[in-house]
Amino acid sequence: MSDAKTVFKDCDVDGDGYISTVELKTALTDLAIIPTENLIQEIMNHYDEDANGKLDFEEFEKLVIDLKTFGEADPEEVLEMFNTIDQDKSGYIDEDELRQVMTEHFDTNDDKTIKAMVKMADKNGDGKISISEFIAIMLSLNK
């Protein structure tokens, strides 16, 4: 059984097939992450794709995969930064969103630079930056 399945099964205390916010706190603790209220809210905002207030296994598994990628980064800060840049809340950062951030914070919106940044971060070639791709870039910057 995978780590995600084991943690999901262990944390789904009521056995309803979903992880509630209360159960999520337990799951995060099991994954050695401090479950602050802000982090719980950011996770639900990002991973609760059907907005039902709880995570099914597929949503939870995406969270576990991304959390494993965090490594030494502060998950709360990285999620907050990603969600700030992801203006349309699509779960991805596209060129327009990156251009807006670069214009606001770095006074540049050079199309070549923006395209190069997306290409550098976009490991699967879909033309946008996922949370896991964003985390990988953030971790590489902190080395």
Rank of each mutant, 00 (worst) to 15 (best):
I33N: 08
I34R: 15
T26G: 04
L28G: 01
I19D: 00
P35N: 10
L24Y: 03
F8Q: 00
I19K: 01
K9G: 15
G17R: 08
V22E: 14
D10I: 09
I33V: 15
I34A: 15
L28H: 02
I33C: 10
K9Q: 15
T36F: 11
C11R: 00
N38M: 13
L28P: 02
V22G: 11
T26V: 14
L24G: 02
E37T: 14
A27G: 02
E37R: 13
A27D: 00
D12N: 09
D16F: 05
Y18L: 12
F8K: 01
T29Q: 09
V7K: 03
D10G: 10
T21A: 13
A27E: 02
A32Q: 13
S20E: 03
D10Q: 11
A32G: 07
V13G: 08
I19C: 01
P35F: 05
T21C: 12
L24S: 02
E23F: 01
D14W: 09
K25T: 09
D14H: 09
P35E: 09
L31I: 11
T26E: 11
V22P: 06
V22L: 10
N38P: 09
P35C: 05
A32E: 14
I33Y: 08
K25G: 06
N38K: 13
C11S: 10
S20C: 06
C11L: 05
P35I: 04
L24W: 00
T36N: 10
I34K: 14
I33D: 04
G17V: 12
V22C: 09
K25Q: 14
N38E: 14
E23N: 00
K25F: 06
K25H: 04
I19N: 02
V22Q: 12
T6M: 12
V22W: 10
T36S: 12
D16P: 06
D14E: 11
F8L: 01
G17D: 06
V13T: 11
V7R: 00
G15N: 07
E37N: 14
K9S: 14
P35L: 03
I33W: 06
K9N: 15
V7A: 03
I34G: 11
V13D: 09
A32R: 12
D12L: 08
D16S: 08
T29A: 07
C11T: 04
I19V: 06
E23S: 02
V13N: 08
C11K: 03
